[in-house]
């Protein structure tokens, strides 16, 4: 089972809903949209040869310059039988940060989605308990977004040009 076979199979099934295929360091990476992500996860899990039955990781990313697709949700799946990984990305616009929850397909998504909500404010629809998990509940911002600087914004002595981002 090669990345080429997986990509071709998905293109037949999902057509234009899967795109931007890449292979950084041999890990098949592609993008889909939020309408198809759950059915795609389910399809890959139930597929008779691929069997992507393990959700390794679910996380978010903030790309403020990527207009119309400022937020990404990144799924890492692992087929333990074939020992192949894939990375699936879904991009969301910052005006509409909704994506369906993956819990019906992978129970382990529960806390990982809560963590992603906690840090990025991405809302996982029909999640049973979408509240903050690591930060305090009173927090009124999403700390991993790029607009929240790590350093105290009032400090003058730490200039980005000298000390990096």
């Amino acid at each position: 089972m090669t990345n080429q076979q997986i990509a071709e199979d998905l293109l037949v099934k999902y057509g234009e809903n899967v795109n931007s295929f890449e292979e950084p360091w041999g890990l098949l990476t592609f993008t889909t949209n939020r309408q198809n992500i759950i059915s795609l996860l389910e399809y890959l899990k139930k597929h008779e040869t691929f069997r992507f039955n393990f959700l390794t990781d679910l996380t978010g990313i903030h790309l403020p310059d990527n207009e119309g697709a400022e937020f990404g949700v990144i799924y890492h799946l692992h087929s333990l039988e074939n020992n192949v990984r894939v990375r699936i990305k879904v991009f969301l616009s910052q005006d509409d940060l909704h994506i369906p929850t993956a819990i019906p397909v992978h129970a382990s998504a529960n806390w990982m989605e809560r963590e992603t909500y906690d840090f990025f404010g991405i809302i996982f629809d029909s999640h049973p308990k979408l509240i903050r998990i690591l930060n305090i509940e009173e927090m009124d911002y999403f700390p991993m977004r790029k607009e929240y600087p790590l350093e105290d914004a009032t400090r003058q002595d730490k200039v980005d040009a000298l000390f990096g981002r």
Binding site: F119, P143, M144, L150, E151, F163, G164, R165
Partner: peptide, 9 residues
Amino acid sequence: RAFEKIAER
């Protein structure tokens, strides 16, 4: 301890 945020700098 916000390691992921600290790591970005």
